[in-house]
Simulated assay, not measured.
Amino acid sequence: MKIILSPAKKMITDTDSITPDGLPEFIDKTTEIQKWLKSKSKEELKTIWKCNDKIAEQNFNRLENMDLYHLLTPAVLSYEGIAFQYMAPSVFEDSQFEYVQNHLRILSAFYGVLKPRDGVTPYRLEMQVKVGIGETKNLYEYWGDLFIAENSIENPEDIKGFKRLGYAFRPDLSSEIEYIFERKIETMTR
Rank of each mutant, 00 (worst) to 15 (best):
148 I>T: 08
132 G>R: 04
96 Q>K: 13
114 L>A: 01
31 T>R: 10
80 E>I: 10
120 V>H: 01
96 Q>A: 14
26 F>A: 09
155 N>K: 15
161 G>F: 02
90 S>A: 15
128 Q>H: 09
87 M>V: 13
73 T>V: 12
96 Q>W: 05
124 R>T: 05
125 L>I: 09
99 Y>Q: 07
67 D>E: 09
40 K>T: 05
125 L>Q: 01
69 Y>L: 11
72 L>W: 00
55 I>R: 01
140 Y>F: 15
51 C>L: 07
31 T>G: 07
163 K>G: 08
41 S>W: 05
19 T>M: 12
151 N>T: 11
80 E>N: 14
122 P>Q: 03
118 D>G: 01
149 A>H: 11
129 V>L: 04
111 Y>D: 02
142 Y>I: 02
123 Y>R: 01
44 E>G: 07
124 R>G: 02
93 E>K: 15
24 P>N: 04
77 L>M: 11
158 D>S: 14
41 S>L: 06
87 M>E: 08
66 M>K: 07
158 D>I: 06
104 L>Q: 01
50 K>N: 12
97 F>I: 10
42 K>Y: 13
41 S>D: 05
152 S>E: 15
67 D>S: 11
101 Q>L: 06
136 T>K: 07
30 T>C: 05
75 A>I: 04
151 N>G: 07
125 L>Y: 00
128 Q>R: 09
17 S>N: 10
100 V>G: 04
66 M>I: 12
160 K>Y: 04
131 V>L: 06
103 H>E: 06
145 D>Y: 04
158 D>F: 01
62 R>N: 14
162 F>V: 12
50 K>G: 10
102 N>Q: 12
93 E>L: 13
125 L>F: 03
83 A>S: 14
127 M>W: 03
91 V>I: 15
17 S>T: 15
159 I>M: 11
28 D>E: 12
98 E>V: 13
72 L>Y: 03
56 A>L: 07
31 T>L: 10
52 N>Q: 10
30 T>Y: 01
118 D>S: 03
77 L>P: 02
89 P>L: 06
75 A>F: 04
30 T>M: 03
82 I>D: 15
26 F>Y: 12
43 E>R: 09
68 L>D: 06
113 V>E: 06
108 S>P: 03
162 F>L: 15
130 K>H: 10
85 Q>K: 15
57 E>S: 11
139 L>Y: 01
66 M>N: 07
18 I>D: 06
120 V>M: 05
161 G>E: 08
160 K>C: 07
63 L>C: 06
116 P>Q: 03
54 K>M: 11
37 L>E: 00
132 G>E: 09
136 T>Q: 06
21 D>N: 15
124 R>M: 09
29 K>N: 11
41 S>Q: 04
106 I>C: 00
119 G>H: 00
160 K>R: 14
154 E>Y: 12
148 I>D: 01
42 K>C: 08
41 S>T: 14
29 K>V: 05
152 S>L: 13
95 S>Q: 13
99 Y>K: 12
24 P>R: 00
121 T>S: 10
139 L>C: 06
70 H>P: 05
124 R>L: 13
26 F>N: 07
87 M>N: 08
148 I>N: 01
128 Q>L: 10
40 K>H: 09
150 E>I: 13
61 N>W: 06
75 A>C: 08
54 K>S: 15
